[in-house]
């Protein structure tokens, strides 16, 4: 039974990744750009899922790590030639991880709503640094004139190459986090999420574990930021705003908290819904009020699907055939 459930999940994820790999064969340039963007958001959403769904830390400042990764990618790139991918990418990840270490070291001393507020405050600090100073070009942002290269092996100016480059990191992030969550480290995070007091009583010093999760999450968000900067060739302070942090939380809730694949599904669902409600072909003049439609749809989704979109098959199965709810909390590979 468990194996069947387990393989069903793997099959879904495998098909999703295969579908994404084949998508460029039929995609328009707009579609390619849109799905590249969604894959980057999916990486970012998985980084937040590591904190919220897997560790129980509701971080409201994930956009800061994303933005730092993006800004570092642009700021460290030479203005007159391409920078080298092999040092720009690690630099972006490292910078985001270092900021996450600083934020995490302080914010993890608080709990609950205070933790949410402190992470938000740190993210807003980072936002105003790039917004109100010339460090990152102010409100205008800065351009990446030459995309990073890997010698002659990788030309990220080509949209399809960039797409597959992003796809590789999406798959890598999923596999890395899935393995991580099944390891000693991941199981301790799961224990902390459910009952931190019991974990301490068992002999785990929980603070270093939470801090390590926070830094890992920040580093992955930095990776997403790097990819975003390379894709758009432009960064601006809005990448660090609390709107994005909020949207990310909605993505993982919409997809289904506690599931890595939920983060990916949530990112796709969120952006598709956003594009749908923004479409003036469908909604005419009302399209400018797209947030209203998006908001109502998300509220309806959460009300009907308390486990998020990953719970949809179970809800449908129960509606159609009745039967017992399943508990999938034991499954490690999500």
């Amino acid at each position: 039974m468990m194996d069947k459930f387990f393989s069903g999940k793997l099959l879904f994820v495998g098909l999703l990744f295969a579908g994404l790999a084949l998508y460029p064969l039929v995609a328009s340039s707009y579609g390619l750009d849109l799905v590249s963007k969604i894959m980057i958001y999916a990486i970012l959403a998985m980084s937040l899922e590591l904190l919220v769904g897997s560790t129980g830390l509701v971080c409201f400042g994930q956009a800061a790590f994303f933005g730092i990764g993006a800004y570092i990618a642009v700021m460290l790139s030479p203005e007159s030639e391409s920078g080298h991918l092999l040092w720009l990418l690690p630099a972006a990840i490292l910078a985001a991880a270092v900021y996450a270490l600083f934020v995490g070291a302080l914010s993890l001393r608080t709990k609950g709503v205070y933790f949410i507020m402190v992470t938000l405050a740190f993210a807003q600090m980072a936002y105003y640094v790039v917004h109100d100073t010339k460090l990152g070009g102010g409100t205008d942002g800065i351009y990446l004139y030459f995309k990073p290269t890997l010698g002659s092996i990788l030309d990220l100016n080509h949209p399809q190459v960039l797409y597959f480059f992003t796809w590789v990191f999406l798959v890598w992030t999923f596999i890395f986090l899935a393995i991580l969550l099944g390891s000693h480290f991941g199981r301790v995070l799961a224990g902390i999420r459910i009952n931190e007091q019991r974990m301490r009583a068992s002999g785990f010093s929980t603070y270093p574990y939470k801090l390590a999760a926070f830094v890992t999450s920040g580093g992955i968000a930095g990776l997403a930021g790097f990819l975003f900067a390379v894709k758009d060739g432009f960064v601006n302070p809005e990448m660090m705003s609390w709107h994005l942090s909020g949207a990310l939380l909605i993505m993982i809730i919409l997809g289904g908290l506690g599931h890595l694949r939920g983060a990916i599904i949530g990112a796709f669902a969120f952006v598709f819904l956003q594009e749908f409600f923004k479409s003036s072909d469908i909604f005419g003049a009302f399209a400018k009020h797209w947030q209203l439609g998006l908001g109502f749809t998300i509220i309806a989704c959460v009300a009907v699907l308390p486990k998020g979109l990953v719970g949809l098959p179970e809800v449908l199965r129960k509606r159609l055939y009745g039967g017992r709810p399943s508990s999938d909390a034991q499954i490690v590979l999500k």
Partner: peptide
């Protein structure tokens, strides 16, 4: 968690190896 996993996780505290992230607990 299963009854077994409850105990296994507690027992893991005696052999903490969080850096071995590739090994299934």
């Amino acid at each position: 968690f299963t009854v077994f996993e409850n105990c296994r996780l507690a027992a893991q505290a005696q052999v903490q190896r969080p850096w071995v992230w590739w090994n299934n607990a």
